[in-house]
């Protein structure tokens, strides 16, 4: 591949990703009650690509599988089916040793609850220095403490904060520490799982701005996971809307918000309380999200969909030109 081609090829390519969880009762209980095995398809046949230096957002409500996808990408979970290709390298089983380490250095994750993602018994300097130690062989030989000081300054903390423990910080500052740790080994790809949903609005603004600044400064690629449509609108270049483990719609951020196509996306946009639309009339939203253990057959959204027909009850719609909907496909909407 030439440089120009590398430039244009996606950094992350997810194809047909699926993950099934066994949620059966323990063996003995199952035998006693005569119940069978139970599975949840948390993620079902999800495909998308993430362009270099851009932010791809996955948005969905509870049970949509968005956090599972995050964990699959960073390798905390093994996919049941499907492939994840990072910068042309297939991330399957069998990636070991130095090669795996080189790759791991390049991706990082930022979690929802900064208090849980920082070891409470470690000092902030040690927390930020951990990736430096783990990837010492792949990093320029420098005083790790100097780098820690640099990282602390980068995320807007002071060097004196390094000796403190996580519980001595506010929520926003803790998330800054988590970001500093994520950046320590100079990754180019960061998965952000609801990074601001535990934070107050004014602090959220600080963190979102910081993340944008860092993206520009270091050319980072983000996969940004959130349930908050406003935040996603602000951060993302491209958005995938998830419903019960499947992608309902994928589109450029602006287009998705201006001309939502999938009935679920439309409903979601109608439901968001937005401060700029005070007192506007809203369409009534119907129904609730079904249980992922027993999803409706066919299109999972059909029980709540105003455009539902017989085909929707039977047949799972495929993602065609960014929308998985029979009604859109048939030109009914």
């Amino acid at each position: 591949m030439t440089d120009a081609e590398t430039e244009r090829s996606p950094l992350l390519d997810v194809r047909g990703l699926s993950r099934r969880f066994d949620v059966s009762q323990p063996w003995l209980n199952r035998k006693l009650s005569g119940a069978g095995k139970l599975y949840v398809n948390a993620v079902d046949d999800v495909s998308f690509t993430v362009a270099r230096g851009k932010t791809f957002a996955l948005v969905g409500e509870s049970g949509s599988g968005k956090s599972t996808i995050a964990r699959l990408i960073v390798g905390l979970l093994e996919p049941t089916r499907g492939d994840i290709v990072f910068d042309g390298i297939w991330l399957g089983q069998g990636l070991k040793g130095a090669e795996a380490r080189k790759l791991r250095r390049r991706f990082q994750m930022i979690f929802q609850d900064p208090l849980a993602s920082l070891n409470p018994r470690w000092r902030v300097s040690d927390i930020i220095a951990e990736p430096l130690r783990v990837f010492a062989r792949d990093m320029p030989a420098r005083d790790p403490l100097l780098r820690v000081g640099e990282l602390l300054a980068l995320v807007g903390l002071s060097a004196e904060d390094g000796v403190k423990f996580p519980h001595q910080f506010s929520g926003g500052q803790r998330q800054r520490v988590a970001i500093a740790r994520a950046l320590a080994a100079r990754p180019d790809f960061i998965v952000c799982d609801e990074p601001t949903s535990a934070l107050d609005v004014s602090v959220q603004a600080q963190i979102l701005n910081l993340m944008k600044d860092l993206q520009r400064e270091f050319g980072l690629t983000y996969v940004f996971i959130s349930h908050n449509l406003q935040v996603v609108r602000h951060m993302a270049d491209e958005i995938g809307v998830l419903y019960l483990g499947r992608l309902a719609e994928v589109n450029k951020a602006k287009a998705l918000f201006e001309t939502p196509r999938h009935p679920y996306t439309r409903m979601l946009l109608d439901a968001v309380p937005d401060i700029e639309m005070t007192g506007r009339p809203r369409k009534r939203v119907e129904g609730e999200i079904p249980s992922p253990i027993d999803p409706p057959p066919g299109c999972a959204f059909h029980p709540r969909c105003p455009f539902m027909n017989e085909r929707c009850r039977r047949e799972i719609p495929r993602l065609v030109e960014g929308v998985a909907c029979h009604a859109v496909e048939e030109g009914r909407i």
Binding site: N209, Q230, V231, R233, H234, I275, E276
Partner: peptide
Amino acid sequence: AIPKLGGDAERLTQ
């Protein structure tokens, strides 16, 4: 500080 659905602001007020 609140991100808006319609907005195209590059940065939020902080």
